[in-house]
Design a protein around this nucleic acid. Structure first.
Lengths: 343, 343
DNA sequence: TTGAAAGCGCTACCAG
DNA sequence: CTGGTAGCGCTTTCAA
């Protein structure tokens, strides 16, 4: 019942009465072979139960592996827990399916083992989920000579960047949130790979390692200044990641005491966490406090959250296509979705 | 700056003054080579910038690919959206990292393209996320002669099953939920791959294609009977998957009209959805209505949900190890976690 | 349009 | 402990 001796091209060639090369062409370059030969080849293949060229052998000879690496967060689990990372991954995965490409998941802990994995991975290219500026793994990936695409940043020599204009989007959403507000609180993504919770007043964005965090802070700062407030007075709570619990903590630990009247959250998850605390406290949104998120998730829509919409799924597709097919990447679109959580 | 001409074992052998085989052994079976030779080899490798055996060539010759396939849901996105599927995937991914194995994600739509992908995947084995009984892809995977492990079921010839005793767990949790209840509502997973919403009274579990759904219904039925109720009177709302929205729909469409006083949900997500509606309706839990989930997620703990705890992460690890290393799989543990959502 | 030869980089096998 | 030989299954190259 089980076919244990592998049928090779040579077998098919013999059965079809043609050369091995004709079989190879019949599969790999159907147009370089006559209709008749092709017919004979496929008939013989069918008869022998040959299911097509062996991927491994194909790749050894051609140099292509038909695999794409996605380099995610420190722990793969973090990426699976973040709805936006998941959407991005879905986009990458679908693009891979379209092109019959395997998807290899790699963690990014900046340890030697991960660098080795990146270097030795049997893949045709790399897609990075957003990481810190100067991440050594980027250099490792680039040094393999294979194409590299980075979502969200950083911009890195030898790589293609795919990202919306975070600064502009952050400024736009913050302007909405700050309408009528005097005491904003920023509930931010991590500043660097240590991912420690930390409160800082008016931090200099340029000192922040994650470009996504950095650029959004730049935009928030611009909006704060435009609103006539002093950036140095604005508390920024850096969290450990894009989790609901971070919004909860930011509000519990700081928002309450500071009587914040606007929360600038870097994701809908974080915003939803803040919203929970606001509801517990019996405050009215947006009367007492305005809240904005980022991502336009389903839950955000359900909660009436004003947010920034961008398609991470599409960015995932584009990133994969850029790496796999060398397609150019267009700067992705974004827009502010106004709902009931802002004035 | 970039190394474009590949350094081969032959180069290293020449530089180290040893045979190619000694180089191969130095990497692949360090104990089969003298300390001295190993030193010379690694020194030469270092000097030439040789980073170890080429995975593709290695696999062509050895027959091993160092890749593991995970066959997920129809759309990969469904799997990413389900917390339990994600946890399982995390476990698989971590086990892969431990053994330097790549992870290839495959969808399972029971279409020819997917069957071809499963058959042609350059992998050493397959891990299936729970699927329907008789899924043709299982046969395809088994027919490759490579090891196959299935989480959750079905039990299928030639595959290793890894699953808790769903029937027993379902009966146990249902007994808790049914305490003092007269009008239970079951908010169930899909019955088959069509994933259509459907209400059915006292359905025969044996007609259900998804073994997880089937087994839990068996357990629920046993508990219903033990509680002195008639299974034929029990409404079962089949949903499209393990989503919060399904619990919402089940309650809105049926629970309200039927004035359900107990909800047996097949996941915490679904239970949480039902809970939302209950809160909206101003009902008291568990006084007016008891609710039980399944999975013991963080959100469930926060909501005080009585639930079934099992570690899908550990099951993922075990599944990967079973396929990769031939380890035997132990039947995983489960337990009922009693909280405040039941009487 | 077809085919023969060469060899991708490595490891199984067996002999020393 | 070490090394030679053979060849995994395929595609590139070049010639017919």
């Amino acid at each position: 019942m089980t076919q244990h001796t592998r049928v090779t091209m040579a077998d098919v060639a013999a059965a079809a009465g043609v050369s091995v090369m004709s079989v190879s062409y019949a599969y790999g370059r159907p147009d370089r072979v006559s209709e008749e030969t092709r017919g004979k080849v496929f008939a013989a293949a069918e008869r022998l139960g040959y299911t097509g060229p062996h991927r491994g052998a194909q790749s050894l000879r051609s140099g292509r592996t038909n695999n794409l690496a996605v380099v995610l967060t420190e722990k793969l689990t973090y990426a699976f827990d973040d709805p936006q990372a998941r959407r991005f991954l879905s986009g990458v995965a679908d693009a891979c399916l379209d092109t019959d490409t395997g998807l290899v998941l790699l963690p990014n802990r900046s340890v030697d083992a991960d660098a080795d994995r990146v270097r030795d991975a049997a893949v045709d290219g790399y897609v990075f989920w957003t990481t810190v500026t100067g991440d050594p793994l980027l250099d490792v990936a680039v040094s393999t000579g294979r194409p590299v695409c980075v979502q969200g940043g950083p911009q890195h020599p030898g790589t293609t960047l795919i990202s919306i204009d975070d600064v502009a989007a952050a400024e736009a959403i913050a302007r909405v949130a700050l309408t009528g507000a005097r005491r904003p609180l920023v509930s931010a993504f991590p500043s660097d790979k240590h991912r420690e919770r930390r409160l800082e007043y008016g931090p200099d964005p340029e000192g922040v390692e994650f470009p996504v965090t950095r650029n959004r802070l730049r935009g928030y700062r611009a909006a704060v200044i435009a609103a006539g407030l002093d950036w140095a007075d604005v508390p920024v709570a850096f969290g450990t990641g894009s989790f609901r619990a971070e919004g909860v903590r930011a509000m519990q630990d700081h928002g309450r005491a500071l009587r914040a009247d606007a929360v600038l959250a870097m994701s809908d998850e974080v915003a939803l966490g803040a919203l929970e605390v606001v509801h517990e406290d019996g405050l009215v949104v947006p009367g007492d406090i305005a809240i904005v998120g980022w991502d336009d998730t389903e839950d955000a829509a359900g909660a009436g959250l004003t947010t920034v919409a961008q398609s991470l799924y599409e960015q995932g597709r584009s990133a994969a296509r850029a790496v796999l097919g060398g397609d150019a990447v267009a700067t992705p679109q974004w827009r502010v979705v106004r709902r009931t959580s802002t004035r």
